[in-house]
Amino acid sequence: MAEKNKARLTKVLDYLKYDDPFSKGVSFCPGCGLELLLRFIPRVLGNDIIITGTPSCSAPVLLGQNKQSWHTLSYFGTLMTGAAANATGLVRYYKKAGIDNTVVCFNGDGTANDIGFGNLSGAAERNEPFIYICYDNEGYMNTGIQKSGTTPYGATTTTTPYGTVHKGKNLRRMNLGVKMAMNKIPYTATATLSDLEDLAKKLLKAKKAKERGFCFLHVFAPCPTGWGANPADTIEICRQAVKTNYFPLWEAENGKIRMTKTVKKPKPVSNYTKLMKKFNHMTEADLEILQEDVEYETCLLGGLSVLEAECQLPVSAQD
């Protein structure tokens, strides 16, 4: 080994300061993006965080079975309709009890963008001091891959199948991250698993910013099982999602959007879609619609980041 040319160990390892609180053998599918994210969060934020979450792919592992547990974190399982409301209750209790800790409300896109959106929105308005993390696998995976509000145009799911009548989802996807940033909460960010250093930084920023109120992280986490992707491609899918601007990386403090990764020459969205079967049936014309949607969102984001830099928030200079 002596003569070997060793590189510097990746900086990401420096962010992993705490032990992995999860058991080694937990039942997520091979290559699941959610599993990588879930193990990553407490290793960066610490094992003393309190996680709350809803029925979803994360629940069987977070909730445990019968009297046994898969991890050593404190977890509070809630209904899909009340995720953020329950987290609110927890932070208020801890505040009253004088306990200083971090509550992480960890949910899928089905909860965050659809079923539990009402109370997510309410918690953002009231500026409740916790971190809401939405792992976006673009559908309701745990119940059998149904479409959600963040499922992209054209994607096939079990409720938007491909056949003679339907050609996958015929609606565009909603932009949950921007929607939350527009609430001018202390911290909003998007992140994904190909860029773990960026994700770690954003987690730590959120932990700080939650002193000032509500923080929201929108994390793109591929689901090989539901998307018909090769499990080995999970990270590559994230990388292509960033390179094609399909899932741009940005952060927003009090709504002021700043790109954390600028893609100078975005690749065509087909570089991303070809990695999974859910887009297999799409024609050139369909891909064009998706491409235009991606460009529209990117343009909007660029516009917002310029505008927000120029505009001053009129109310509440209380921060």
Binding site: S23, K24, G25, Q68, S69
Partner: peptide
């Protein structure tokens, strides 16, 4: 009890 663990 110890943590659950599956032989993945």
């Amino acid at each position: 009890d110890s943590l659950m663990c599956t032989d993945t």
